[in-house]
């Protein structure tokens, strides 16, 4: 589900998905102050992953239906198990 959410957000802005960096990075031999920034960057969310936060998400069906009715727009309805961290 996590990748589907991310893809949905990317698709909505017509951006291609890029897994290149986290997939190909090899870990350093050890964590030192020299490797600190690279390890920190690897553990961080990518630009694509943070786009999720730019969407104005409604948390319940009632709020979404009300706004969609008033603005005459369709509803994109993501249903998942868990919360916005989408770890499940």
């Amino acid at each position: 589900m996590k990748k589907l959410f991310q893809s949905l957000v990317l698709a909505s802005i017509s951006t291609s998905i890029s897994f290149a960096d986290p997939l190909t990075e090899a870990p350093p031999n050890e964590l030192t102050w020299k490797t600190y920034d690279a390890v920190s960057a690897h553990a961080s969310q990518t630009l694509e992953e943070t786009l999720y936060f730019k969407v104005d998400w409604k948390n319940d069906v009632l709020g979404a239906q009300r706004e969609a009715y008033q603005k005459d727009k369709p509803i994109v309805m993501i249903l998942f198990f868990g919360d916005h961290r989408s770890n499940c």
């Binding site: 948390n59 319940d60 979404a64 969609a68 727009k73 509803i75 993501i78 249903l79 198990f81 919360d83």
Partner: peptide, 8 residues
């Protein structure tokens, strides 16, 4: 769209 994210 109006975007909704919730738990089924």
């Amino acid at each position: 769209f109006v975007s909704l994210a919730s738990s089924d």
